[in-house]
Computed example of a mutant assay.
Amino acid sequence: MEYGSIERELHVDASPEVVFEVLTSPEHIRDWWSAETDLEPAAGATGSLMWTDEDSGRRHSSPFTVVEADPPRTFSFRWTHGEAETAGPGNSLLVTFELVPTGTGTTVRFRETGFRERGWEAAVLEAHYNDHRQGWDFFLPRLAASAGRLAAAR
């Protein structure tokens, strides 16, 4: 396996505007990604994502840097896990959401790259890649459900 990128495509029963809001609004990120954040959806903005383990109370923080915010079409950011205080090229992974209007909803094209560029040993690379793959397989359907609920409420 190459461990170069994780790519997913999903349909969301909500407009690109609603999906973009759910992707970038701290209150909605809390709903679908279970993370607290101070995200500002503007290129160059920095912040962190904070998860709390419900069982132990342990907190995990990941710094991020917004790369592109073009509502309602594209949102991308770099994030890193504990090794650096800021996320940038060479020390982070790049996540991109492309939002394409489709009928009455949105096709979300998701991609996370940069695994090989981190320079991890093979076993570490495989572990990080698989952890992220499983994570996105869990959280992306929650993103779709959150956006669908918001669209239905409007």
Rank of each mutant, 00 (worst) to 15 (best):
E9V: 14
E9S: 15
S15G: 09
P16T: 08
E21K: 14
E21R: 15
L23M: 07
L23G: 01
P26M: 07
E27D: 14
D31C: 07
D31N: 09
S34K: 12
S34C: 02
A35I: 00
L39K: 07
G44W: 08
L49W: 15
W51E: 00
T52K: 12
D53L: 00
S56T: 15
G57Y: 11
R59K: 13
S61L: 06
S62C: 12
P63H: 02
V66P: 06
P71Y: 02
T74A: 10
F75H: 12
F77V: 07
R78G: 02
W79L: 07
T80S: 14
E85H: 06
A87H: 01
A87W: 00
G90I: 01
L93A: 02
T96P: 05
T96F: 03
T102L: 03
G105I: 08
G105Y: 03
T106E: 04
T106G: 05
R109N: 09
R111I: 09
E112T: 08
T113F: 02
F115V: 01
R116S: 10
W120Q: 14
W120H: 13
E126K: 15
H128C: 13
Y129G: 02
Y129F: 15
H132F: 01
H132K: 06
W136H: 03
D137M: 04
D137I: 01
F138L: 12
P141K: 03
L143G: 12
A145G: 09
G148Q: 11
A151R: 11
R154L: 12
